[in-house]
Amino acid sequence: MLLLIKYTLLYGIVLMLVALGGMFSEHSGIINIALEGIMVIGGVAGVLALTMLPADAPAIVVVLVSILASAAAGMIYSLLLAFASINLKADQTIGGTALNLLATAIAVVLAKYFSESGSAKLNYSNKPFLFSIGGLELSVFVPLGLVLLIVSYVVLYKTRFGLRLRSCGEHPQAADSVGINVYRMRYAGVLLSGALGAVGGMAYIVPPVQTWNFEVGVAGAGFLALAVMIFGQWKPFHIFGAAMFFAVFKSLANIADSTFLASFGWSSNIYNMMPFIASMIILAFTSKNSMAPKAEGIPYDKGSR
């Protein structure tokens, strides 16, 4: 049971972080389908930072520096999406898909360049990220995620910035007419999603294992996070709940062999399928009353006000 909680928390926080990123972007009016790619970039940047830091550096420094490096890389990468979809008014879905494809290629090229073996596998130590409370081994991303969740809620609903951001996703023309710089707010939304998505990508890769093959990317976790965001109705605490719900399914696969579930004799493929099937069923039932920001996906053109 403890194991189930551990895996659920670890994976749930990943989904939640990335989904929160998607939420900021979509509230500003930009569909961020590039989350998968941003996770990969964040992961590779974080891991590279880890491997480059001196081995005797204090744990707190290692954690902070690598997470910041990851977030910064994610923000830079998300600029590409922001530039294409805000300034050039490109189709956001296509731009995002291109960035997803590009991200894996970049990650593999970087990983191969920096790894000793010439393969896309990077080795690192995840010790600084782990701690345990009463037998429950957790990563620093769990408390960090919970803090970011609360911060996200406050920023989105209790600050002027949040209100302005949401207005750009609902009715950019109206926002512009009262003097809000729609372009700048949308950039802010996409950049926030880049930072959160990247940290989520690092949280996906680093805590569970000590070596990662970047040819794999993040295996669809970014897309699952999009489903979490939709299921969470674009609201922070709903997203947290949704992320945990999906994570339970995923975690079942990890503990299946050691518990009563083993008696079903299901393979990992079946467990792997579960979160995706669950998300489809849930989407089918929740699609009727969507709370999606109204103007998302539509490029804003000052001229067409």
Partner: peptide
């Protein structure tokens, strides 16, 4: 790395967008 080709096609699609 042979993935340079993927990198190139990735950039090309981004531009196509």
């Amino acid at each position: 790395p042979t993935e340079i080709a993927d990198l190139i096609s990735g950039i090309i699609i981004y531009l196509c967008a």
